[in-house]
Amino acid sequence: MGYAERNTWAQVISSIIAAAVYAVVLIPRLRTQTAHEVQWVQPMLWTIVASIVASIVLSIGIGIVAGMINPDTEHRADLRDQEIDRFGNRIGQAFLIAGSLGALTLTMVRADWFWIGNTLFAGFILFTVVGGIARLIAYRRGFQ
């Protein structure tokens, strides 16, 4: 497994875990409080920071383990990695746009900030996760 693929795994895993933890924290609050009352800003900020830190730590950890297993492991990306990265971004962008349009629509109908913020957040998470999975499939099945 190459350097860029390892980083993609780290990014996808940390994003999925972060989103799951955020959902587990937020959903029970929605059962007892209205969307307007739910405190979501702090959990979302913590989720974003934790996801970034976890991705970096996981990436370094996987790199160290890969280096121990195979000392010839490379720690750089090349042209193929760049092409696969662009491909993943193109796939993920659809979700980013869908999230932005959803947030725009919610703003127009004067929905609560909770729904606007979380729709944008869902767009970012889906951009990262779906784009990352598309990259991983490209690495595994081939990329022409």
Partner: peptide, 16 residues
Amino acid sequence: GVTRQTLIAIEKGKYS
């Protein structure tokens, strides 16, 4: 000037 993984992908026909 590529990684070993890219050369493997080329040889396996997984990357043009």
